[in-house]
Design a protein around this nucleic acid. Structure first.
Lengths: 205, 205
DNA sequence: CCACTCAGTAAACATGTGTTCGCCGAAGTT
DNA sequence: AACTTCGGCGAACACATGTTTACTGAGTGG
């Protein structure tokens, strides 16, 4: 694998990343549909025309940001759903993981929450694809759990949807509140997961 | 009450409403943070400067739209949570009501979903206030249900949050899918509510 | 009937925008 | 060493933007 790619491609990737970083920062207080291409290049310190060497337009940039924000999360999520420990322990682990991720990458999380239903169709679609992939992976992991014996695939997928939606909701709730309210948001998230776990236990009654 | 307000104030309210209607239509495929004031006046057919006779800026317009989209919904929601009939019947009623509302006012629903985490702070805040009010009202209604005996207020509020979040999620999921997928979205929504209901029954174990 | 209020107008302001063009010079290739 | 590739530049294009200004004329109330 890893060809030590030439100093040319390296530089290109570097400025591409700089564009994405600056864009993400600018997107902290506006939506993608109002993000100007010149605004981004100005923040990076380069000429507007150079933007086109990397992206076809701001929508394209947005799709790349989705990939960066969500693409690397699949492994993390699979790891979070491991079925070891009591329900309580698993809930604690999952919620702690969300909290840590939001604290580590707040701008990414904000971007996803904002553009999930935002005004730029290709970006919305890209986010939808990733979240559906998450749900599929969670559903698969849930299927492996002995607790899920007797569940139909459709019901597993339904449950997975609840988990993924809840994860996104919790993450964006963490962003809205001030720093002090973090623990109470997480406590609520844990209670909600406990509620779902109870429903899960009695689903086949 | 209702002073038959003069033909002057009547006209003013009429063009104000025209501005809001045109804006809502333009917002079907962009976010508020990119909505231009001129764009709106052009759609209505009036001079840009006249906009300021009604709103301080597009953010102000947005807040007014939130009021219009969500303000009239409190009664509907209270009516939807009435505690008559079996759980199954109540779930069917609630989900049908969401479906009907989305079909009747798709632009309003889209606007709320989009700006809930959008780039315009005052609008985000206005939506947050309304949704919190919804949750409070639902929590109060749940408290009146004999089934909620023994629940702490905090837990009731937590449950209400699940219901409100689920309502918003379902509504925006209905918008994303094509017309044919409506029934499957509603079926999933019903199953998820059934899951929550089960958890609710066993909460005090 | 007359003074006054005020929603809507037209024009001008200074800036901002996306996109195209030809050019440069360092990196890569033979 | 000669030749090609290509990321970035600066300038120019034709518009679009928010906001202010002085003005008009219909609605209002004494």
């Amino acid at each position: 694998m890893s060809h030590t790619l030439g100093i040319r491609q390296a530089q290109k990737q570097k400025t591409r990343q700089a564009l994405m970083d600056s864009a993400l920062q600018l997107l902290e207080d506006q939506s993608l549909s109002s993000l100007g291409l010149r605004e981004v290049t100005r923040a990076v310190g380069m000429a507007p025309a150079a933007f086109y060497r990397h992206f076809a337009g701001t929508a394209d940039l947005g799709v790349a940001l989705v990939e960066q924000a969500l693409g690397s999360l699949h492994g993390t999520i699979r790891a979070a759903i491991v079925t070891t420990g009591s329900s309580e322990e698993r809930i604690d682990r999952a919620v702690a993981l969300i909290g840590a991720h939001v604290r580590a990458h707040p701008a990414h999380v904000r971007f996803i929450a904002r553009e999930r239903h935002g005004g730029v169709a290709p970006v919305r679609e890209a986010i939808g694809v990733q979240l559906r992939r998450f749900a599929d992976e969670v559903a698969e992991a849930l299927g492996a759990d002995p607790e899920s014996a007797g569940w139909t695939p459709a019901d597993l997928r339904m449950l997975a949807g609840v988990y993924v939606d809840h994860m996104v909701m919790t993450a964006s709730a963490l962003l809205e509140g001030d720093a002090g309210s973090e623990e109470s948001v997480l406590a609520t998230a844990r209670a909600q997961l406990r509620l779902v776990t109870l429903g899960r236990h009695h689903w086949l009654d």
